[in-house]
Simulated assay, not measured.
Amino acid sequence: MSTLKNALTDSSMMVRRSLLHIVRYPSMAVPIIVSPIVFLLLFVYVFGGTLGAGLGHSGGRHEYVDYVTPGILLLAVAGAATSTAVAVATDMTQGLVARLRTMAIFRPALLTGHVIGGLVQTFLGVAAVVGVAVLIGFRPTAGVLGWAGVVGMLTLLIVSITWVAVLMGLVSDSVETASNLPMLLMILPFFGSGFVPTDSMPAWLGWIAGHQPFTPIMETLRGLLMGTPVGDNGWIAVAWCVAITAAAFAGATTLLNREPKG
């Protein structure tokens, strides 16, 4: 019981530290909120007329904003990973992790703090995107269960991407490297169904888009938000999130517990 109490105490301390960093250093949090909103406005007002016309029905911007919002939510989640990766790399390069290794502290508490802090920070960005999307015409038809599913899917996604960001921060040899690695995550929504249907792509690219992790997640969010069938995308999306979380968690904890050479 004492070990469990110490683990909870250490973890809550690190969570508080991460949340205080969000308040004290808004320069990292502001881009997380602003960048996806800029992408949303860009795609709706610059490209939305043309891209929306290809969706069928009445087409146009008002239909495209319903289609593109799930893709922008994925961009918001992927973009928030930069802040977490940088925070972890900073702790590594400034010697905090080395000091913690010499102390009687629950080691995973540091990672837990970063993950929960990242979860809170990312949800702020996601909420901002949804708010702006509604202002410019996004009209989800989800009921209570649909919104519960959306929140659950986003939580699984954010946790998985945040653990990937933690792993990226641990493997980075500098803060600069850590700030660049998550950019790879931001590319995936563009090579998926985030902005155009995969069946509009060349066959080879459509196959890649249909089998990468973000596409079933975006299709699940789109179905839940707009009240359309989710189909197999639901369980595939959950499976991807669980697998990514497990792999990133295992890699991050292994690196954290590995004693430095020399």
Rank of each mutant, 00 (worst) to 15 (best):
T155G: 13
S200N: 09
S83C: 11
I187A: 12
H21V: 15
L157K: 01
V86W: 09
L256K: 08
W163P: 04
A80C: 08
F214T: 15
W207F: 05
A81D: 07
G149Y: 02
G146S: 02
Y25G: 07
L42R: 07
P26F: 12
S18K: 04
P36C: 02
S160V: 09
P70G: 02
M218S: 10
V134N: 01
V230R: 06
E176K: 01
V30Y: 08
K5W: 13
G71P: 09
A165R: 05
P26Y: 11
M168G: 14
R17H: 13
H57N: 12
D91N: 07
T112F: 13
V144L: 15
G143L: 06
I136V: 09
S35C: 10
F191G: 10
F214S: 15
N6L: 13
P26S: 11
F47S: 07
V175D: 09
V129T: 01
A128M: 05
T93M: 14
A7W: 05
N180F: 12
D199G: 08
E219F: 01
Y45M: 04
L170W: 09
V126L: 13
P182Q: 07
F39I: 04
I217D: 03
D66Y: 00
V171L: 13
A237S: 09
S11F: 02
C241K: 05
L100R: 10
T253C: 06
G79Y: 10
Q94M: 15
G125E: 05
M28A: 12
Q121W: 00
A250P: 08
V65D: 04
V68M: 12
A203I: 11
G192S: 15
T245Q: 00
S58N: 14
G54I: 09
A81K: 11
L96P: 13
M186V: 12
V242F: 08
G95Y: 05
I236F: 10
G49K: 03
L51M: 15
S18P: 03
A80Y: 01
M201H: 00
G206F: 08
I72N: 07
G95D: 10
V126P: 11
H21Y: 12
L185A: 14
V196S: 09
P213G: 06
W235K: 03
A85Y: 12
F123H: 06
L224E: 06
R258P: 05
S179Y: 06
G118M: 08
N233D: 15
V34I: 09
G56E: 06
A7E: 07
G125T: 03
Q121C: 04
V159D: 09
V115M: 14
A98C: 04
M13E: 14
M226C: 08
T112P: 03
T90E: 15
P197G: 09
D66E: 04
M14E: 15
L181Q: 07
A247R: 02
G210E: 11
G231I: 06
A209I: 05
